[in-house]
Computed example of a mutant assay.
Amino acid sequence: MSLENFIPLNQLCTHYKVEMSFFTHLNEFGLIEIETIEESPYIHQDKITDVEKMIRLHVELDINFEGIDTVFNLLEKIHDLQAELTATKNRLRLYED
């Protein structure tokens, strides 16, 4: 497996000043997926934006892991509802024109 799309968790721990257990808990809640490559834990670079949000929620707002899980589930539902609303509006335009 190529490492070019993955970021080592120890590097993220150092950069964001969080413990490795933070990422372990996020993984346990299913919020991130930790890949073990050559016996070292990594996270895919596509998830870094979500990880940064989770760190801010936890560190700056003191939200626990259950709260972070709830926030991300609600954000996902909002995104799905917005997509559904857009699709409905597009279908409605077909009948209006």
Rank of each mutant, 00 (worst) to 15 (best):
A87P: 05
L85C: 03
D69M: 03
L75T: 03
E35H: 14
T36L: 06
I43Y: 04
R56M: 14
E38G: 07
A87K: 10
R56S: 15
I48W: 07
I48F: 01
V51R: 05
I43L: 04
P41M: 01
E52R: 10
I68V: 14
N73D: 03
Y42Q: 10
E60P: 05
I48G: 01
E39H: 02
L81D: 06
L31Q: 07
Y42N: 05
N64A: 08
Y42L: 11
E28L: 12
V71G: 00
N73Y: 04
I48D: 03
I32D: 00
S40H: 04
I34G: 00
L57C: 15
N90Q: 08
T86I: 10
E76Y: 01
T70Y: 14
I34T: 05
F72S: 09
S40M: 04
L75H: 06
L81F: 03
L61F: 14
R56D: 15
L74I: 09
L74Y: 09
G67Q: 15
H58Q: 08
R56F: 12
K77T: 07
L61G: 07
I43W: 05
H44L: 10
R56G: 10
T88R: 05
L81A: 04
G30K: 09
I37L: 12
A87M: 02
D62E: 14
Q82Y: 01
V59G: 00
E35W: 13
K89G: 07
L57F: 15
E52P: 02
H79A: 13
F65E: 14
K53Y: 12
D62H: 12
I55E: 09
T36M: 00
E66V: 13
E28S: 14
A83F: 02
I43S: 00
K53W: 13
I48L: 14
G30L: 05
G30A: 06
T36V: 07
D69N: 08
M54A: 14
E39G: 01
D80Q: 09
T36K: 11
I43A: 05
F72P: 04
A83H: 04
I55W: 10
I78Q: 12
I37D: 00
S40N: 07
I48H: 06
E38N: 10
Q82S: 05
I32R: 01
D80G: 05
T36R: 03
K89P: 00
L31N: 07
D80I: 08
L31A: 05
L85Q: 08
E28A: 13
L61H: 14
K53C: 11
I32W: 00
V51A: 06
F65P: 04
D69L: 08
L75G: 03
Q82W: 04
Y42C: 10
H58V: 03
E84K: 13
I55A: 09
I48C: 03
H58W: 04
H58A: 12
E66K: 15
D62N: 14
S40F: 00
A83K: 05
D80M: 10
F29M: 13
H79N: 10
P41Q: 02
D69I: 01
E39F: 06
I37W: 06
E28P: 02
L85D: 06
L81R: 08
H44K: 13
E76W: 01
N90E: 02
Q45A: 11
K77D: 10
L74V: 10
G67A: 11
T88N: 06
E28V: 12
I43T: 06
N90L: 09
D50I: 00
I37Q: 08
H79V: 09
I37G: 03
